[in-house]
Design a protein around this nucleic acid. Structure first.
Lengths: 125, 125
DNA sequence: CTCAGATTTAGACTTAATCTACATCTGTTG
DNA sequence: CAACAGATGTAGATTAAGTCTAAATCTGAG
């Protein structure tokens, strides 16, 4: 973590161990709740601050995909997303799984783009 | 409006006149604020309820594209979105402007998909 | 006209997220 | 090692979006 210029405090390490390893796309509140299991005194503000810090240093991406709250994703490579209409669950889709042609818009410098897919599990009841 | 089985109360007409005609992608709070200018007694609950009603009847789409709040869009045809990193402004992109290949995911029934593009205006300071 | 059901209202409530003021920790310097 | 400054963390207040509730009002069928 220090390679990124982030001082590895105990709180930050506890947060990192969870959020940099999960593929669950947790919300900030879910991260807080999860981290408190092993670090009961960690405050909400520290979790929110640390998530923003990780994001600023390129360790995390923050997505808003519905459900009313932002989720965090340690997969910082370009990829697409699937959102389950019924459960809200989010799944990463590999970049190569969807072919997207040139994205050029008049008067726009494109920084990034991705496809958001919504639907349901084929075997859902 | 009655063709859709929606009783056209004065409040609903006032809301519809704004939100079904705009391309500004307003949030619910912005709709409320805008409608109050011509209908000062309309309540927040009515605006929220009516937006959901219009959405359920296919007159509106609701998008979450960052900025922390949902926006409403009377353009219900498939299309993509551009989000300005600096202003948060949202612009519709015609479906035909971006070529997207087959979207097929294992064990998933796809209901819809679209591309979200982020960047800045080319002439921004 | 009456009344049941639909609609609206004001305000309380919930939740995510941010902010603030103070406390604590840590690395550096003497 | 001790002291200090800056970085980090804390609890709790605050804000903002959105939802809910109970009561009031409207509307149209009979």
């Amino acid at each position: 973590m220090s390679q990124y210029g982030i001082r590895p405090s105990a709180q930050r390490v506890a947060i990192a161990r969870y959020v940099l390893a999960t593929d669950q796309h947790p919300t900030a509140e879910q991260v807080w709740s999860r981290v408190r299991a092993t670090f009961p005194t960690v405050s909400r503000a520290t979790v929110y601050n640390t998530l923003q810090l990780f994001k600023q240093h390129g360790l995390l991406l923050e997505h808003e995909l519905g459900g009313g709250s932002a989720v965090f994703d340690p997969n910082v490579e370009p990829h697409h997303h699937f959102v389950d209409d019924e459960t809200g669950e989010i799944r990463d889709i590999p970049w190569s799984a969807i072919a997207v042609g040139d994205v050029q818009l008049p008067d726009v410098q494109v920084r990034e783009y991705s496809v958001v897919v919504r639907g349901r599990r084929a075997d859902a009841p």
